[in-house]
Computed example of a mutant assay.
Amino acid sequence: MASRRHVIADDLRTQISTGRIKAGERLPSEAHLAARYAVSTPTLRSALAVLQGEGLVEKVHGKGNFVRHPVQRITYVGGGRTPDAQTATDVALRMTVRTTHLPARGDLTALLRVSASSPLTEFLCLSHEGKSPHSLALIYVPRDLAPADGPSESTLCEELLVRLRELHPPLAEVQERVSARFPTPREAVTLRISSAMPVLAVTRVATDTTGRVVEAARLVLPGDRADALFTHDTMSGDKRTEG
């Protein structure tokens, strides 16, 4: 016998798929829904979490639960290319960047191969599809390689990456590690996804010809909207991997 949360989720899912509740529309309050289905608030929230995990509903802090518009899929193109997740040619996403200066600490010291407290610059690139967050990229560079004037809040992430490339020495190696995991609490809040929604996490480290790490990027792509594609030259003996 199906649990109450799945019965509720099935009913709401049917209303969404048939258009009775339209994309962008706010669901009734959690208290109202709990009363309608004669369940406790925790059970109702558990049912909503099922729909959030499927990408059908998003919870906006302080505003309520909304039916998501169909989410566009993007493709992360690996193999030494620009560390930007928004590489699908048919997806129009609005991207902004926020800049923070910070000392190297924790695992950033190992990631960038620098000593503790070394000056770094963090660029937080957040893409939006309409009003909804779509994907997240955190890019770290040594402070002396960051643009001197610093990009503004409205700078497009692609423009930032072009400027970083102009400041970098030639790259000798790019390593990319891809894994599937659940989002951290901060990532879930930033991307407005359920903590049960798996994400594709990409860690990319670029090294110059002197062996110095000049850039490290951490990309977080929700699993309901992202694929990864890696292409390598078979003539050189490399493998070709597509995901």
Results as ranks from 00 to 15, higher is better:
residue 216 A to H: 03
residue 11 D to Y: 03
residue 27 L to H: 04
residue 176 E to Y: 02
residue 62 G to T: 08
residue 41 T to F: 06
residue 197 M to P: 11
residue 241 T to G: 01
residue 70 P to S: 09
residue 211 G to A: 03
residue 180 A to C: 09
residue 118 S to K: 14
residue 111 L to E: 13
residue 44 L to P: 06
residue 80 G to E: 04
residue 8 I to V: 13
residue 168 H to L: 05
residue 34 A to Q: 12
residue 243 G to Y: 01
residue 57 V to P: 00
residue 84 D to G: 11
residue 162 V to W: 00
residue 176 E to K: 12
residue 129 E to G: 14
residue 125 C to I: 06
residue 113 R to V: 04
residue 18 T to K: 15
residue 75 T to Q: 15
residue 200 L to D: 14
residue 210 T to W: 11
residue 210 T to V: 08
residue 43 T to R: 06
residue 75 T to L: 15
residue 61 H to D: 09
residue 154 S to P: 03
residue 13 R to E: 14
residue 105 R to G: 02
residue 56 L to Y: 10
residue 96 T to R: 07
residue 212 R to E: 02
residue 234 T to F: 01
residue 189 V to G: 06
residue 187 E to L: 13
residue 36 R to E: 15
residue 62 G to V: 10
residue 27 L to K: 02
residue 123 F to P: 04
residue 176 E to Q: 14
residue 55 G to E: 03
residue 84 D to K: 00
residue 40 S to W: 10
residue 100 T to Y: 06
residue 194 S to C: 12
residue 11 D to C: 05
residue 50 V to C: 06
residue 226 A to V: 07
residue 206 A to N: 08
residue 229 L to D: 09
residue 129 E to Y: 07
residue 47 A to M: 03
residue 129 E to F: 09
residue 144 D to P: 06
residue 33 L to K: 08
residue 7 V to M: 08
residue 15 Q to F: 07
residue 196 A to G: 07
residue 97 V to Y: 02
residue 27 L to G: 13
residue 155 T to M: 15
residue 6 H to K: 01
residue 54 E to Y: 05
residue 195 S to Y: 06
residue 11 D to W: 02
residue 142 P to A: 02
residue 91 V to Q: 15
residue 154 S to L: 11
residue 237 G to V: 01
residue 204 R to L: 00
residue 2 A to I: 15
residue 238 D to P: 01
residue 218 R to Q: 12
residue 183 P to E: 05
residue 47 A to V: 07
residue 95 M to A: 11
residue 119 P to Y: 10
residue 108 L to F: 05
residue 177 R to W: 04
residue 36 R to L: 11
residue 119 P to R: 06
residue 38 A to T: 14
residue 124 L to D: 12
residue 208 D to G: 14
residue 129 E to H: 09
residue 242 E to I: 14
residue 43 T to W: 02
residue 119 P to W: 10
residue 5 R to L: 04
residue 163 R to D: 14
residue 226 A to C: 12
